[in-house]
Design a protein around this nucleic acid. Structure first.
Length: 574
RNA sequence: CGGGGCGUAGCGUAGUGGCUAGCGCGCCUGCUUUGGGAGCAGGAGACCGAGAGUUCGAAUCUCUCCGCCCCGACCA
């Protein structure tokens, strides 16, 4: 039983000055966490109980799915991360340190290497697979900008799992098992979330989904179709545009358009000259880039920007992409800045990509590859041929859903889980192989699955809190029932004590406000701020042999006769 | 790393060259009070982020450094 009279807790009346987002403010005010450094927090009793409740739920669901818990050190030698190149690849986000002999160590940001090596050390037969292992552990990432309290910290608690399979089908099965297990876990945690398809980056091909908890203060933006439920990362959003019949489009025509290096200036001149109501959407933007050293051009409608992250995620095999710079233009005199068109891409040896919005048969105004000249009626498939289509244009609210064509919304969310198929990258690098049925050595294929445990505390808080405080789901809350004794004589305190003991006897987690020196107002405010789901007040109504019960979330109030209060309260929890 | 803001007691803050750094919350003692962050009285608690400089005199002005928050870039 948590007794407020002795609980290590001091709630704050004022908002902390360094907290902006609501969950952070309230977690500090209610005495759950305290900041130690940027992105590094201590957990006080209430916070730590809550964190452990979440861990418990995750653990129960992992175990129920047949995954086995292990535990690695957070302090790791450089070696394993050297072999997968992540010692350098992870860059400045990696916390590095040295021991007294000058040996390099790191604080683990994620543990693919260690899990892979652990399995390699124990198993060597296909008969041992499939296998899924997990741990709940503190991770370290030296984030460029920690923010929003516990939502993005430099030290945080993560549950990470890894699956090991012989075959791609096996990996799919393991992936689906994790997916199901995550659904159960997040449902139990009381989180609202969307499962969003994510890109798996340059490795390509493998499945990847994020569990996103919608919330205004979230830092991930994603696309959501409220009509059919389609949800996707902005990078992974697919654009579906039908080809257009272009047989009636007149011949391409080159016109003088002096001083029109930008879309805005071009549209203005077009309207002055032809007065046809031209807009940016009629023009075609040719974005020149250098991808892995080669010049490529990406076509998007003139009223849209290229989303470089999206392009990078969708361009097959591209490792490094950057925009054309002055020096690049200088090296390629055929490319006239501000007047580039796709018509001569082939002759110039440029790989030409188009966003799907630049559909086959669509006709555009675009650069004529000559200073101060543009070309009208430039038709995709007739006047230029693209080498491939790639989703690269910025995604906007109102764009068509790829499943049902309804306008999508752009929403914000906190990423609370991520599952993806790693494939054989780590197993290959670290030589994790097993012998198959035929005695042949096979590289194992892996999946990687994460839940942000400490982040989940913030995400749940964020989704449930209100103006007066935190408001936890019962399983997560520090206590299920918060019993408050008020009054100046002993009776309510004795009764409250008995009731709390009774509830505990029924297997409930109870917090008891037995402070004799605090006024009723203070106790009510604290109870509301702390956010346990049921508040029981033992006080005035005791005169009628009753106790008062309040539902924190709905502010609903009721009274029960003392004699059956305990059983009635327990009923409310089920 | 760019832009902005900030650093005064455990927390929130006032104090833009002047003498003993002020207030609220919280904390301690006593009395009163007990259904919505009680009242009165007394009290403890601050090398004013650090260092250097300007000055008769610096929380206040200058420089350097450190730290924190927000936006952006970046990031499962």
């Amino acid at each position: 039983m948590l007794r407020m009279s002795t609980l290590f807790l001091r709630t704050l009346r004022d908002d902390p000055a360094d907290a902006e987002v609501p969950s952070h403010r309230l977690l500090v005010r209610a005495g759950y966490i305290r900041r130690i450094a940027a992105g590094i927090y201590s957990w006080l009793p209430l916070g730590y109980i809550t964190l452990r409740n979440i861990e418990r739920i995750i653990r129960e669901e992992m175990d129920a799915a047949g995954f086995q818990e292990v535990h690695f050190p957070a302090l790791l030698p450089r070696d394993a991360y050297q072999r997968t190149d992540r010692w350098t690849e992870y860059g400045p986000d990696l916390f590095r340190l040295q021991d007294r002999r000058g040996g390099d160590y790191l604080l683990g940001p994620t543990h693919e290497e260690m899990f892979t090596l652990m399995v390699k050390g124990e198993y060597s037969s296909y008969k041992d697979l499939p296998l899924s292992l997990y741990q709940i552990q503190t991770k370290y990432r030296d984030e460029l900008r920690p923010r929003s309290g516990i939502i993005r910290g430099r030290e945080f608690v993560m549950k990470d799992s890894y699956s090991f399979d012989l075959t791609d089908e096996g990996l799919n099965e393991s992936y689906n098992k994790h997916r199901d297990s995550y659904i159960k876990t997040f449902d139990r945690l009381g989180l609202k979330y969307n499962i969003v398809s994510a890109t798996s980056g340059a490795m390509g091909g493998s499945r990847s989904e994020e569990f996103l908890a919608p919330c205004e203060t979230g830092e991930d933006t994603y696309v959501l179709c409220e009509a059919c439920g389609y949800a996707a990362n902005v990078e992974a959003m697919k654009t579906v545009v039908e080809p257009v019949d272009s047989t009636s489009v007149p011949q391409m025509q080159v016109v003088d358009t002096p001083n029109t290096p930008t879309i805005d200036s071009l549209v203005q001149v077009l309207n002055e000259k032809f007065g046809k109501g031209f807009t940016g959407a009629h023009t075609l933007k040719n974005i020149l880039l250098v991808a892995d050293g080669k010049t490529i051009s990406v076509l998007v409608p003139g009223d849209r920007e290229v989303d470089l992250k999206r392009l990078q995620a969708n361009l097959p095999g591209a490792q490094e992409i950057r925009l054309f710079e002055e020096a690049d233009f200088a090296k390629n005199p055929a490319l006239v800045k501000g007047y580039v068109g796709p018509q001569e891409a082939k002759q110039l040896g440029i790989t030409l990509y188009a966003d799907p919005r630049v559909a086959p048969g669509t006709s555009w105004v675009t650069g004529a590859n000559k200073k101060d000249c543009h070309a009208l009626n430039v038709v995709n498939g007739r006047d230029f041929i693209v080498d491939g289509y790639v989703d690269a244009a910025e995604v906007r609210k109102g764009d068509a859903c790829p499943q049902c064509s309804a306008p999508v919304v752009i929403d914000r969310a906190i990423e609370i889980g991520h599952i993806f198929q790693l494939g054989r990258k780590y197993a290959q690098a670290l030589d994790l192989t097993v012998l198959d049925r035929d005695g042949k050595s096979q590289v194992v294929t892996m999946g990687s699955y994460g839940i942000g445990v400490s982040r989940a505390v913030a995400a749940i808080a964020e989704q449930t809190l209100d103006e007066i405080g935190l408001c936890w789901p019962a399983e997560v809350a520090p206590a299920e029932i918060h019993v408050v004794a008020t009054g100046k004589d002993d009776k309510p305190f004795i009764v409250a004590e008995e009731l709390a003991a009774q509830l505990e006897g029924l297997g409930r987690r109870v917090m008891l406000d037995d402070r004799r020196d605090a006024s009723p107002g203070v106790k009510f405010k604290d109870a509301e701020l702390i956010g346990n789901p049921i508040i029981v007040v033992v006080g005035k109504s005791l005169a009628d042999g009753k106790v008062e019960v309040r539902i924190r979330r709905t502010a609903e109030r009721m009274e029960f006769p003392l004699v059956d209060a305990a059983s009635e309260i327990v009923k409310l929890l089920s």
